[in-house]
Simulated assay, not measured.
Amino acid sequence: MSEFIGMPAPRRRAPAAADLQARAAELRSGREAYVLATVVRAQRPTSAKAGDRALVLSDGTMEGFVGGVCATDTVRAQGLRLLELRRTDRSVLLRITPEAEEPREEDGLIAVGQPCLSGGTLEIFLEAVLPPVLVHVYGDSPIARAFAAVGRAMGYQVEVSADPLAAIAGDTAAVLVASHGVAEEPVLREALAKGVPYIGLIASRRRGAAVLARVDGGERVHVPAGLDIGARTPGEVAVSVYAELISLR
């Protein structure tokens, strides 16, 4: 009841910053999306203070402390809204105040009226933290190595394997096959079965057609993979394929 008009209840103990940082690191390593909520300004009376933090998970769970029940519910709702946008650069300043009548949004600011606040105003910075794009590269060729180098330079998480039976994670955004004819079909079938959005095969149009004729659903595979930019070197081929991936995403 600490957010209702009247005297605020004693402030609850917030989790240690190190604990929250460790939890955030755990979420990142597990490729789980979350929103980091940080109180940047607290106009008393409020139960939160500047520097308080919380994590909003994709299932609505909140860990940490950014205020009482009314503030928490608002932060949860706006945090989930950010996660639904699925943009890595998405952040917003949330102002929760009893003075606003209707929600208002402009230039990275969302102002939300909350009459059950105890009279103060909170400004909370919300930052969506999404897992990096996951790319599975199959092969041990110069082009496969270029896929790894270019993808990592772009900030993607690139998993490289020369094992055609290696597992493909369910949230993989792209599978790039660059083994030059070695055990391509099992990888393509697995990628198609997992519903990977982008599947690229490094092969000539003629050889690629012969390979895909033996793979159900092969019409979804991009071959020759990449945009036609006159690529010749492994690095140029990698750039052309990632450019196609970006254009389609």
Rank of each mutant, 00 (worst) to 15 (best):
R205A: 15
A213Y: 04
H180C: 02
D73V: 02
R207L: 14
T233D: 04
R13G: 00
A48H: 00
G230N: 13
E159L: 14
V239I: 13
L188M: 07
I229K: 02
A33V: 08
R152P: 02
L188E: 01
L248C: 09
D171W: 11
A213L: 12
P224Q: 09
L201N: 02
T61W: 10
P103D: 14
D140T: 01
C70A: 13
A149K: 09
G170F: 10
P98C: 13
F125E: 09
D52A: 01
V223T: 03
P10R: 10
I199C: 12
A33R: 09
A193T: 12
D52S: 00
M1E: 14
V35S: 11
R28W: 00
A18D: 05
G218H: 09
R95D: 12
T172E: 12
G68F: 11
I96H: 05
L130F: 05
L248H: 06
I124F: 09
V177T: 01
A18M: 03
G151T: 07
L93R: 07
V223C: 12
R214N: 09
P164D: 11
R86S: 03
E102C: 06
E3V: 05
P10L: 15
Q157R: 13
E219D: 11
V196M: 10
A128E: 09
L109N: 06
A174V: 09
V75I: 05
R13D: 12
R249L: 14
D52M: 10
Q157H: 09
A42R: 00
Y138K: 02
Q114V: 12
S29E: 15
L165Q: 06
